[in-house]
Write a protein that binds this DNA or RNA. Structure first.
Lengths: 321, 321
DNA sequence: CTGTTAGCGCCTTCAG
DNA sequence: CTGAAGGCGCTAACAG
C-alpha cells in the first residue's frame, strides 16, 4: 500500500497515530503518500483487533418518514458522533421479522450496541437473546414489559391522563379515542391514561368510540367520518399520535359546520399547523430529539439496566386564524 | 469459539455456508452449537478477505427530520435490503464539514458506495477525490455541475416553470419567490424555472419579492409577514420547498382577510394539509421514495456515470373546507 | 468429508 | 527510531 512511500506498514501506522516514535521527516513522507493515494485506514480490520470496537451502533425505528423519528435519529447521531461512532439505520415498518433480521445483522457487524424502537407485537425473544449474548440494547419510545433492558419512554400515561382531564373539564363526555393497538406500548399506555381519567370522572368509555386497527391517515379519516354519521357521535377526540391526529383533523374539518361549538381534540405529539385549527387542540408535546440523545447516552454509559421517563407538556393551541 | 462443538473453524464455516461438503450429522451439531452460543459470523472479518465487500452503503442527507428525506431513505433501504446491504446514515444539516467527515469515515469502513444529498455550498472537492479513489458515489436530489458522478434529480426547472405558468394564467403578476439559495441545486433550478416562466410572459421579477437566506419555518413566516405590510405586496407566492411553503402558508393564513380574492400559492413538494388551504395551492408533487430506490439502483448497477431526471406532477389542491 | 495453511489490514510486542 | 513476527475471524486452496 502506502509502502510505496518507502517504509513499512508499521511506520505508516505509527505516523497515522501521531503518538509513536517517528522522525518528523518520515512522518511527513508518509502523510504525503497518504494524501496522494487517498489512503484511509481500514476500520473493519482495525475493529478486528482485540480490545477494539466497531464504533457502529445499530438503530431501528418503525417509520423514518415520520418526522418524530427523524428528529429522534438526529438526537442519537448528535451524541454518537461526539464519540466517533456511526449509525447503521434500519426501518422496520412495524415488522417483527425485519427487526429480527436487522438485529441479527447488527450482531454480525459487531456493533457496540443497538437502539431499538420495537415494532408492534409481543414476540420479543430475539431482543432477549441479543441482550443475553452481550449486545447492549436500549429501547426507545416503547418499552417491553418483562424484558430487563434499558429503555427511555415518555410519560405516556400521565400525559394522556392530563390531556383527557382537560377535555372533561371543558364539558366533554362523549370522547373518542383513536389509535389503540395491542402490542404497541405507547398506544396501550396512552389509552390507559385516557381510560383512567374517564373513570376517575365517572364517565364510561364507550366501546364504539374507541378506534383501533387503523393504519394510515386516509383510513383514520374515513373511519372518523363514518363515526360522525352516526347519532351521538363524539364531541371530542383523543388521538394517540400525530398520524392519527392528522386523520381525525381532516375528518373534522370536512364536517366543520355540523360539529358542536365546543368540539375539541387532543393530539399526542405536536402538530405543525396546530395554530390554524378552527377547533381547540390540546397538544401533548415532547422532544423527540432529546429522546434520541438520551437513548444514545444510556447506550454509552455502561451502567446497569435502567428506565428513564421523559416529560411531556400539555399545551393548548393558540388559534391564529 | 464454536469449536466447543467438537470441530474446526473450517467445518463451522462450511456448515454455515451450507454448500460445502459436510455430513448432515456434523452440520446439525454445528448449527446446534451456533444456536446455543448465539454465535454469528463476524462480518468485519469476512469483508477483510479478498473479493469480499462490506455490504455497507453510506448515505448522507441534509435533514432526516424532513419527511421527504425519510421517505427517500426508506426507498434506498428497500432496494439495498434486497441485496443484503445495510445503510450507514449521516445527517449533515447542510454542513460541508460534516459531510466531509462522514465520507471519510465511509471510506474507512470500506463501504460499497455512497449516496449523497450534497450539503449547501460549492466546495465539493472531497466528493471529487472520493470518486477518484474508486468509491462509487451517487448524488441524489441535488446534482453538482462539473462533477462527473451519477446523480438522480427531479425535473426541477420544468416543474417550477409549469407551476409558475399556472399562476400567471390565473392573472398573477406580482409573484413572490421564497427559497432562493446560492449553492443549493434545487433552489437554483427551481428559481431558474420560475424566472424563465416570468420572462417568457413578459413579467419582470421584482427583486424585493425574492426571498433568500431564510432558514426555518418561523423565519420565513416573519419575513413574509413583513412583505405583506409593504404596499403592492405579492398576490401569489412560489415556495421552493415544503419547509418554505409552511412559513408562507402560516403568514398568509394570518393575513387571510386582507389578501386579494385570488391569492394563490405554489408549493414545490407535496403538503399534507393542502386540502385544508383556504387559498388555491398549486402543488409540484413527486415521489421521494422512488428517488431513493433509483439512487440505490444506480449505485448497484456498475455502469458508467449517468444523470437521471424523475418527473414531477402539477396538481391543484382541492379545497375541502 | 474434514483439517491445515495462509493472508486479508491492522497494531501490540519484541528485536534490532 | 524502525522493522519483523504474530494473531484478531474468516475462508479459498490444498492436503489427508
Amino acid at each position: 500500500m502506502a509502502l510505496k512511500a518507502g517504509v513499512s506498514t508499521m511506520t505508516v501506522s505509527r505516523a497515522l497515530h501521531d503518538n509513536g516514535n517517528v522522525t518528523e521527516e518520515t512522518k511527513e513522507r508518509v502523510l504525503a503518500a497518504v494524501r496522494e493515494l487517498g489512503y484511509s485506514r481500514n476500520e473493519n480490520a482495525r475493529s478486528l483487533r482485540p480490545g477494539h470496537s466497531s464504533n457502529l451502533i445499530g438503530v431501528t425505528v418503525t417509520d423514518i418518514s415520520n418526522p418524530y423519528y427523524g428528529e429522534f435519529v438526529i438526537g442519537v447521531e448528535e451524541v454518537l458522533a461526539q464519540h466517533g461512532k456511526r449509525v447503521i439505520l434500519g426501518n422496520t415498518s412495524e415488522s417483527q421479522e425485519r427487526e429480527e433480521q436487522l438485529l441479527a445483522d447488527f450482531a454480525g457487524r459487531q456493533v457496540d450496541g443497538a437502539i431499538v424502537v420495537p415494532a408492534a407485537g409481543t414476540e420479543h425473544t430475539h431482543l432477549r437473546s441479543m441482550a443475553d449474548r452481550g449486545m447492549r440494547v436500549v429501547l426507545a419510545s416503547r418499552s417491553i414489559d418483562g424484558l430487563d433492558v434499558s429503555s427511555v419512554v415518555l410519560a405516556d400515561f400521565q400525559g394522556a391522563y392530563d390531556a383527557t382531564v382537560e377535555l372533561i373539564r371543558s364539558g366533554h363526555e362523549r370522547i373518542g379515542f383513536v389509535g389503540w393497538a395491542e402490542g404497541i406500548y405507547t398506544a396501550v399506555k396512552r389509552y390507559a391514561g385516557f381510560a383512567q381519567a374517564m373513570s376517575d370522572h365517572g364517565i364510561p368509555v364507550e366501546e364504539r368510540y374507541v378506534i383501533d386497527r387503523v393504519q394510515g391517515v386516509e383510513e383514520v379519516e374515513k373511519t372518523i367520518q363514518g363515526l360522525f354519521e352516526q347519532p351521538k357521535s363524539p364531541t371530542a377526540f383523543f388521538s394517540a399520535n400525530n398520524r392519527h391526529h392528522m386523520g381525525v383533523f381532516r375528518a373534522a374539518l370536512q364536517r366543520r359546520h355540523e360539529l358542536p361549538d365546543n368540539f375539541a381534540m387532543v393530539s399526542f405529539d405536536d402538530f405543525e399547523l396546530s395554530s390554524l385549527s378552527p377547533f381547540p387542540v390540546i397538544i401533548v408535546s415532547h422532544d423527540p430529539r432529546e429522546m434520541g440523545r438520551t437513548a444514545a447516552e444510556m447506550l454509552l454509559e455502561s451502567g446497569r439496566e435502567e428506565q428513564r421517563v421523559l416529560p411531556v407538556h400539555i399545551r393548548r393551541s393558540v388559534r391564529r386564524v
